[in-house]
């Protein structure tokens, strides 16, 4: 009979009429985010950064600008390179996270914020001072050490670099003796390295 299909559709609509709405009223409430969410507010630990510019080399858009300056003389005598400039041009950043994956010292982490709008274009440039001054709420993206301790980037406290474990050196081994014997670079299931 003509019309049965339409009636059946109306039953579905009526059932949905009494269902709880799924709409979120955004500015007042927001959707729960995953801890791996890749967003702005990059966390950068200046004490770990050597200015090697791996992040800048692996950025597909080339928006990270790093200038380093030798500081304190000879490297053999404990002198280090000072990072003079660390600019991220967020206006063009697509939050792919390849800079974080490339960092061999776990110095750069993704952030969890997504409300990045600014009134002026130059405000979208993150400088070294911005990165140093802000609270550290690193995303757990490509940071298994944070994931293992069930770190929640949306909880209140700011993360210190001393408490953030280092794992990227197992992904980017620089010398063969840094590798475990069988060449396996991943942690075991309980988080320990062989």
């Amino acid at each position: 009979m003509y019309g049965i299909g339409i009636l059946r559709g109306l039953v579905v609509t009526a059932r949905n009429l009494v269902r709880k709405p799924v709409t979120i009223q955004y500015p007042e409430e927001s959707v729960p985010q995953a801890s791996r969410f890749r967003g702005q507010e990059f966390t950068w630990f200046v004490d770990r950064c050597t200015g090697c510019a791996s992040c800048a080399k692996f950025c597909p858009l080339g928006i990270i600008r790093i200038v380093t300056d030798p500081n304190g003389g000879n490297e053999q005598d404990g002198g280090t390179y000072r990072v003079d400039t660390f600019d991220i041009d967020q206006a063009r950043c697509m939050y792919c996270g390849l800079c974080v994956e490339a960092c061999p010292y776990d110095a750069l982490h993704m952030g969890s914020n997504f409300e990045a709008a600014q009134y002026r274009r130059q405000d979208l440039l993150i400088t070294k001072e911005d990165l140093n001054g802000r609270d550290k709420h690193p995303s757990t993206w490509f940071r298994p050490q944070l994931e293992r301790e069930k770190f929640d980037p949306f909880a209140g406290e700011s993360k210190k670099w001393e408490d953030t474990g280092r794992e990227a050196r197992f992904w980017h081994p620089q010398r063969p003796e840094m590798l475990p014997d069988d060449g396996d670079t991943r942690p075991t299931a309980d988080g320990e390295y062989k």
Binding site: A34, R38, W141, E147
Partner: peptide
């Protein structure tokens, strides 16, 4: 898409897979 966000931190522009597997295990 919420599942994708758990997996790889993004919903649309995922960049999840890498040459030789995926970038990381699922949480």
């Amino acid at each position: 898409l919420d599942l994708f966000e758990m997996l790889c931190g993004a919903r649309i522009t995922v960049s999840y897979m890498r040459i030789g597997g995926v970038f990381q295990d699922a949480p």
